[in-house]
Design a protein around this nucleic acid. Sequence first.
RNA 1: GGUUCCGUAGCUCAGCUGGAUAGAGCAUCUGCCUUCUAAGCAGACGGUCGCGCGUUCGAAUCGCGCCGGAAUCACCA
Length: 592
Amino acid sequence: MIDFKRQLESLMMPLTVELFGDHGVAIDLQETRKEFNADFTLVVFPFLKFSKTSPEKTAEIVGSKLSTELSEINNFSVVKGFLNLNLSQEFVSKIFAGIESEKNFGITAANNTQPSVMVEYSSPNTNKPLHLGHIRNNLIGHSISNILKASGRNVVQVQIINDRGVHICKSMWAWKKFGNNETPEKSRLKGDHLVGKYYVLFDQEYKKQVSEKMSKGISEVDAKKSVACILEVQKMLLDWEAGDPEVVKLWKKMNEWVYSGFNETYQRLGIEFDKNYYESETYILGKSDIEEGLKRNIFFRKEDNSVWIDLTNDGLDEKIVLRSDGSSVYMTQDIGTAIQRFKDFEIDSLTYVVGNEQDYHFKVLFLILEKLGYKWAKRLHHLSYGMVDLPTGKMKSREGKVVDADDLLDEMESTAKQMSTELGKANSLSSKESQMLDKIIGHGALKYFILKVDPKKRMVFNPDDSVDFNGNTGPFLQYTHARISSLIRKAGFQKSIDLSDVHWNEKERDLVLGLSKFPEVIHNSAIDLNPSHIANYLYEIAKSFNSFYQKHSVLSAESKTISAYRLALCVQVAGVLRRGLNLLGIDAPEKM
RNA sequence: GGUUCCGUAGCUCAGCUGGAUAGAGCAUCUGCCUUCUAAGCAGACGGUCGCGCGUUCGAAUCGCGCCGGAAUCACCA
């Protein structure tokens, strides 16, 4: 489907050139404000220089030219310097026919010859369960993957699991000390929660030991470094690196618990990855790339043997890439991992979904890879999203001020259940059906609540608001879809329709023109890496539909012809809502 | 202190390649279910778009300077 707005602009261009001469003035069509009852507005101010008359007069001249010469334009009106144009019924029909002619209007199927794009998201540590912050990350990452797919890209979704390091050793240490061989099976606790429990236990023990030491007159800084438990954890990490069989065995066991817990949560969220990278495998990467860059003078070695890159000419600082003992820093393995990924897959770009606290890190990473001469470095993106705050302030995992992902999903489901019971919606459904619906609606509410906000902005998560199912919410969109589905069910088989004589009323025109924007919205979301455009667009469509639905009857319209084309319109609205919601990872129920 | 991001209605957010009287939802208040799902619709109330200067026919939008908030600037992960 071609963009009819752009089509109109190019039709108008030669006409204005005819009127005022060719001065390179672009035609800028914008949507008419609601109160003026027209489809598009052409701002004539840019033409004043050449029309040499008042804005009103200029608009008159342009308006009469356009409406006489273009069959697409029916009539026009002038308000101040604004030329309001009305599209002809035939042209609206043509636009609608274009929408109908495509099976999955708005979605561009992936072309297999195209290079793929990799999206990395989630990337959890394996010492505690997922929380609200991960949920935002996951929802954005998954949604943007869907959106990229819908704009014709092949997508490889990956996560890197931070499965090694002091954090997991802390859990391991506490489990050995206090665990009594507790397992997820024995205590019927989800694996990631069980490991998280021992991480918390470690922290408590650590604090206890630190304060004991401090009471003996040792400074806090020294105490924190010298208490027994932290020394044992550090020893454990060294043993792990040395491949100590017993430590490795425990490490494997506890990580497995965490993975099964994560997978359960991912499944609930409807998320899956094409490949998991593990830090235990990637943390060695990058050193050889540094050595090579050192030979090419991209990096330099200081007297103490540490290796650095000087980025002061790029407005940044000097950055370390290898420690003086030759060991890696985060940057080292990120360099190596990026390079590895372009070897593993036929991709031409890579997008990292990571919080904005790491803006600087990624700026440096991309710059280094560019200096190393990788041409794909220009196509690395950091989808930097803002932190999620609670109404009470920042989330602090150490202080237990976190919203747990599983708890949150449970809560959303039970709220959905409560709502549908109150509204008497569940009566006509089997208990199995309504249970499914509670999940679809509860999760829909959560996903929409998070995705409707521009990712790069920090957002406040108020549980009371997220649980609201009225107004600009996921359930509202789902409800609209269910309403239409019900109409379609009742109408039965849909006849083919003749659009040639349709007289579109105002609400219908709004819908047709609204629907026509869907491909562009997807495209822009993909370019901006921003799912919120989709969310806000769907809300507009749904509002527009409900307003239409309230005012005009579909099944018992004035005539069968009207009924038929209205139904066809409904089918397209439902399709756009469903496909749009799916891009956000939200299911569109047929009943609710 | 340097760099980056943010500041729009009581609250949560749209709008930001410059365009008309700045939009939604929530909250508060009014109407609308003997008619296709009222998780809906129609309406009221609510604003010095952080402040100032500049560019422009025109600035929430662009530039500069302040004020306020956040992140980051580790031989941490």
